[in-house]
């Protein structure tokens, strides 16, 4: 597909044109374009633009929601093609939004990034109690736990999750990763998390390097 195709796909995501996103992703797959390329050069490139605009204060929450929704439409089409053939996943990852927090846009984008980098994701959803993270790791054998929060009021639960893993004797066998709008590197260090990155793409790349 030429550059004009990706420009149209990017614009369709940022403008929330879900029908166009649906059509363009299907067309590209039918023409044999790799799902990873459509994801990277189209959907994620669009989200990168929205993230920049958000950072600069030129768009607000509605525009982010609109783009994220369009991204999810595209992702649903690409997802079956994002599996890595007969290759085993790089690692199993348990992810969820911590207790008392219902915000999942960021968490879902992280899940998407991880899948596109060859990880298997076990998504526990939102408002996840510490014990549920531990239980999911015990049941799945996951080596990575990712948790997020949007509210500063729910950040207290990050510490509780770390504590729950210590009490279960599993702290040294999992990488604990934290993220979310109010989460900082200082905070991650305070609660003894293993990995913090400010955005989903950088995080997926970091995790990939860490487990290589």
């Amino acid at each position: 597909m030429d550059q004009a195709f990706y420009e149209e796909l990017i614009l369709s995501v940022t403008r929330g044109k879900v029908k166009d996103v649906d059509r363009l992703c299907r067309e590209a797959l039918e023409k044999g374009v790799s799902a990873f390329k459509i994801l990277d050069d189209g959907l994620l490139a669009a989200m990168q633009i929205v993230a920049e605009r958000w950072k600069n204060g030129t768009v607000f929450i509605p525009e982010v929601l609109i783009a994220a929704r369009a991204l999810n439409v595209g992702l649903a089409i690409l997802e079956p093609y994002l599996v890595l053939g007969n290759q085993k996943p790089k690692a199993k990852v348990v992810l969820g939004t911590v207790k008392d927090d219902l915000h999942d846009i960021g968490k879902n984008i992280v899940g998407l990034m991880l899948k596109s980098h060859g990880f298997e994701c076990i998504d526990l959803g939102v408002d996840v109690a510490p014990a549920k993270f531990v239980q999911a790791v015990k049941e799945s054998g996951a080596k990575v736990v990712c948790m997020s929060a949007l509210l500063t009021t729910s950040m207290i639960h990050f510490t509780e999750v770390v504590q729950a893993f210590k009490e279960a004797g599993l702290r040294d066998s999992v990488l604990i990763c934290v993220g979310g709008a109010p989460v900082t590197a200082t905070f991650a260090s305070q609660i003894e998390a293993d990995i913090f990155e400010p955005d989903a793409v950088t995080f997926a790349e970091h995790l990939e390097r860490r487990l290589a």
Partner: peptide, 26 residues
């Protein structure tokens, strides 16, 4: 006016989605 603004710029479907996420979800 906020709903109208989003609706005019991104379509009613998107405006409904935004309002459902920001407002009705809770």
């Amino acid at each position: 006016p906020e709903y109208r603004k989003i609706s005019e710029e991104y379509g009613e479907d998107n405006a409904d989605y935004v309002f459902s996420m920001l407002y009705d979800k809770f």
